[in-house]
C-alpha cells in the first residue's frame, strides 16, 4: 500500500472541490467545496506522515482543522448577513464590487 494511491485520491477530491467552487452558484455549496479541498490536502498530510513516520503532518492537519472551524463560523456569519441584505445567497447576486 503505497502513498501514491492516497495522493491520487486526494488529487481527485481536490479537483472535485475546484469544479464545485468554479461552477456552483449557491455560496453555501461553494463553501462546502472549499472544505472538501481542505480535506483533500489533509489526506495528503496524513498519508505523508504515515509514510515518513513523522507526526508533524498530523499536527498540520490539526491546525488546518482549527482554521477550518474558525472559517466556518466567520464564513457562515458572512453568508447570513449577505442573505439579510439581498435575500439570496447566490454568488451571481453579490456583485457590488464588480466594475
Amino acid at each position: 500500500m503505497s502513498v501514491g494511491h492516497y495522493l491520487l485520491l486526494s488529487a481527485a477530491l481536490f479537483a472535485v472541490g475546484v469544479v464545485g467552487v468554479v461552477t456552483r452558484r449557491n455560496s453555501i455549496i461553494v463553501y462546502m467545496c472549499i472544505e472538501l479541498m481542505l480535506n483533500a490536502v489533509n489526506l495528503t498530510f496524513i498519508a505523508f506522515a504515515r509514510q515518513l513516520g513523522d507526526m508533524g503532518g498530523q499536527i498540520f492537519t490539526f491546525m488546518v482543522m482549527t482554521v477550518a472551524a474558525a472559517e466556518a463560523a466567520v464564513g457562515l456569519a458572512i453568508i447570513i448577513s449577505v442573505f439579510r441584505n439581498r435575500l439570496s445567497v447566490d454568488v451571481d447576486d453579490v456583485n457590488l464590487l464588480k466594475g
Binding site: A69, A73, V74, A77, I78
Partner: peptide, 16 residues
C-alpha cells in the same frame, strides 16, 4: 490557534 479561535468567535458574533 487559540487566539485565532477567539478572533473568529468575536468576528462571527459581530457579523451575524
Amino acid at each position: 490557534a487559540s487566539v485565532l479561535l477567539l478572533a473568529a468567535i468575536v468576528g462571527a458574533v459581530m457579523l451575524a
